[in-house]
C-alpha cells in the first residue's frame, strides 16, 4: 500500500502557513517527498487573497488593517478567503501519481470526495457541486465562498468548503478551507465593495454559505474532524497516511519563503518579490 505523509493540525500565522505550503510544493517537485496532506489553523484572523487579486480593490484593506486581520497573498489562484473559524488543508501531489490526473477538475473531485466522506463521519452529508451550479452572492464576487465551483462541496445546498489550486512542474498544490464556524457579518465587512449592499450581502451570505457547527449540536473538535478526513483519504485512496513533519530541506525553504516573500508587502500587495537577487513574480 502506498504511503503518504500527513502533517497534523497546528496553528501558525498566515505568512508561515503560506511559506510552509510553498516549501512542501517545491520539495515535492524534486520528488523527494510523498503526496502530503497538511491541516492547519491561524493564530490571528487572516484574509488570504488569490495570487492575482488586488487587495486594495477586492477586500476592505483598511478594515482588515485596523481590525488586526493579517492579509497574505496565496501561491494558489482563486478568490479571497477570510480565515477565522475554519479548518484549512493543503494537499500536494504529483500529477503523474496514478491516483491523480492531469485533469484539474478530476483532482478537485477526488479530494472533495475524501473531504465529503470525512464530513459524513461527523454526521454531515455533503454533496459535490455539479457543473454550472450556483450564482454569485451580491457584490461579493471577489469572495471565494460567493460561488460554488464544480466539484466543490455543498451541505444543504450551501457552500461549506472552498478550494484553489496551483500547478507547477507537474505537481499540484490544492488549498481548501472547511468552515467550522461562519460569521456572515464580519465576512461581508471584510469583503464588501459597495456599502449600500452590505445588509443585503450579509443576508445572501446567510442563505448561501454554511459551516460544520451549524450541522452539529455540540460542535466538532477540530482534531476529531482532522482524524475523520485523514481516515477518509486512506479509505478512499487506499493509501496509508503516516504522521510526520517538514523535512530539513522544507524547513529551510519555509524560512526563506517567509523572509523573502510572504512577510514582504511587495508580495502581499503587488504580487512581486525579489528572491536571491533576482526579480521574479511569485
Amino acid at each position: 500500500m502506498e504511503e503518504w505523509r500527513f502533517i497534523p493540525f497546528e496553528r501558525f500565522s498566515a505568512f508561515e502557513n503560506m511559506a510552509t505550503d510553498e516549501a512542501i510544493l517545491k520539495v515535492g517537485q524534486q520528488r523527494q517527498t510523498p503526496p502530503t496532506l497538511r491541516f492547519y489553523g491561524w493564530t490571528e484572523p487572516a484574509v488570504t487573497i488569490g495570487y492575482s487579486q488586488n487587495p486594495r480593490r477586492e477586500i476592505q484593506y483598511d478594515f482588515c488593517r485596523k481590525g488586526g486581520i493579517d492579509i497574505v497573498r496565496r501561491p494558489t489562484g482563486g478568490k479571497a478567503v477570510f480565515h477565522d473559524g475554519d479548518l484549512t488543508y493543503s494537499f500536494v501531489a504529483h500529477e503523474r501519481n496514478p491516483l491523480f490526473s492531469t485533469d484539474i477538475m478530476k483532482n478537485y473531485g477526488t479530494i472533495s470526495r475524501c473531504i465529503a466522506r470525512g464530513l459524513e463521519k461527523a454526521g454531515i452529508e455533503a454533496a459535490l457541486v455539479e457543473e454550472g451550479r450556483g450564482s454569485r452572492v451580491g457584490s461579493l464576487d471577489s469572495f471565494c465562498f460567493s460561488l460554488p465551483l464544480r466539484n466543490e462541496l455543498l451541505v444543504g445546498g450551501k457552500k461549506i468548503c472552498g478550494s484553489a489550486q496551483l500547478r507547477s512542474r507537474s505537481v499540484f498544490l490544492q488549498h481548501g478551507s472547511i468552515l467550522l464556524d461562519f460569521d456572515p457579518e464580519i465576512t461581508a465587512r471584510v469583503m464588501w465593495k459597495n456599502e449600500e449592499n452590505l445588509m443585503e450581502d450579509i443576508s445572501k451570505l446567510k442563505n448561501s454559505v454554511t459551516c460544520v457547527n451549524e450541522h452539529s449540536e455540540n460542535g466538532i473538535e477540530t482534531d476529531l474532524l482532522c482524524r475523520y478526513i485523514k481516515e477518509s483519504f486512506e479509505e478512499t485512496m487506499k493509501v496509508r497516511l503516516l504522521e510526520s513533519s517538514l523535512t530539513p530541506r522544507e524547513e529551510v525553504l519555509k524560512e526563506r519563503f517567509l523572509r523573502d516573500k510572504y512577510l514582504r508587502p511587495e508580495w502581499n500587495m503587488e504580487g512581486k518579490v525579489e528572491i536571491h537577487g533576482r526579480n521574479t513574480d511569485r
Partner: peptide, 26 residues
C-alpha cells in the same frame, strides 16, 4: 502575469503564471 520585458529567463525556470477559474499554472 509575465516576467518584464528586457529581463532574462533561464531554461527550465519560471517566466510567469497563467490563471483560469480552475487553477494557476507556472
Amino acid at each position: 502575469k509575465l516576467s518584464d520585458n528586457d529581463s532574462s529567463v533561464e531554461q527550465d525556470e519560471s517566466f510567469g503564471f497563467i490563471e483560469s477559474a480552475k487553477t494557476t499554472m507556472e
